[in-house]
Design a protein around this nucleic acid. Sequence first.
RNA 1: GGAAGCGUGGCCGAGUGGUUGAAGGCAGCGGUCUUGAAAACCGCCAAGGGUUUGCGCCCUUCGUGAGUUCGAAUCUCACCGCUUCCGCCA
Length: 449
Amino acid sequence: MLDIQALRNNLSEVADRLATRGYMLDTTRFEQLEGERKSIQVRTQELQAKRNATSKQIGAAKARGEDVSAIMAEVANLGDELRQLETKLEQVQQELNGFLAVIPNMPHESVPVGKSEADNHELRKWGTPAQFDFEVQDHVSIGEGLGGLDFETAAKISGARFSLLKGQLARLHRALAQFMLDTHADQHGYTETYVPYLVNADSMKGTGQLPKFEEDLFKVPFGLPEPTEAEVANIQRTGASSFEGKQKHFYLIPTAEVPVTNIVRDEIVPPEKLPLKFVAHTPCFRSEAGSYGRDTRGMIRQHQFDKVELVQITTPEQSYVALEMLLGHAETILQKLGLPYRVVKLCTGDMGFSAAMTYDIEVWLPAQNTYREISSCSNFESFQARRMQARFRNAQGKPELVHTVNGSGLAVGRTLVAILENCQQADGSVRIPEVLRPYMGGLDIIRAA
RNA sequence: GGAAGCGUGGCCGAGUGGUUGAAGGCAGCGGUCUUGAAAACCGCCAAGGGUUUGCGCCCUUCGUGAGUUCGAAUCUCACCGCUUCCGCCA
């Protein structure tokens, strides 16, 4: 969420910057809502002040044993008008909040302006794609050839966009996650965390998945379908309350970013604890609505995949340094695995809703003869922190919003794909990168069973 | 799932209808004292918002939401969370 003060004070400038990422801010609507809010709020507060002052008088007069009926008459009809105004103010403020909640973050000044993926800037390349003196297979053929990758059975069990791993490939998948977790925890100073995979709506709002992107999520209902008698009575008596809230739901996390970042929601973190650095290995669940027909073959785009996520909670001064370091931590994994990659700085038009700056790491996939995203590292500045009310105590001792930074380190499934394709051999076997062998019981090559 | 209890500021903890945004303590900040530190003593210390050039003034907030009342941390109802006991379960 953007700072509403920024919109009040520099509306056209904010609108211009949002326009670079393709978001057209409705400034007329904002000014209208804001004007309404202002007049109603001023009037409401005047009446509240009057009510409070009069009530105090009544209290004082009663204490002195005086007759209060005259003063009481004075405020008798104040209540109705005040209640109406308060309700109206609530409505306007909710509208304003709704308006703010769907505005994306402002891009950092250094982010290249562009419309799409094509306008991203390649920053650097690492490693040299291997030359193969045989016909390269994609990960699906390799995996199926090894008897460890089975999409048909996964489709029977669940449907499209799921995969089933068996034997050494399942173990390789586990080895990758362990290796990443160990590297980040032991060498990069992250605290390993185990987190809930089902979260509430507040957490999803905090990191920006809600309210705008509900269709990308899996929503899991639970709870009683019927209200109890007491609730029915309460609803009838008050008239105001609805049945809402009894039928509840969780959301399956689309990334560990959600539960991990929300660790600091509604907290004031002592400054000496910053930066907080967390790493978590979790499954991620995405509906992939709107991606029909894209990456339908293989395990590139799945409803369920594993990811090791890095999250840093920092101060505003440190957040861009933190982003560079976190990017480096993610790159380290690919370097240790010996997988060629490149780093891309996303342009304004290609960035996610909440990000102020994003680097993508793309790994080389020989079968596709191209680089594909395997990690996305972003600084969200105070955008998520404001939604979460996540703060720290600054040098002046005042609470101030933290900055949040996160990135994949890495997507486990896509790393598995990259290893299968980059480390394939002429006979269909796959060479295991050195660093993974301790996790594979010393195995150096995966061969067909 | 059943029973009981509890939810107050960064933390602990008073407070059961009227100048209570909230005693007291801890932590923090400033000062006196000290060569320095500690101790002792004195003072300051919630957040969010509105309005104002500024001093300031005002509003909201005691788990959440409704309600009663001129007035609610305090009374009523519902919900959420936590703790303990019983049951069940990995």
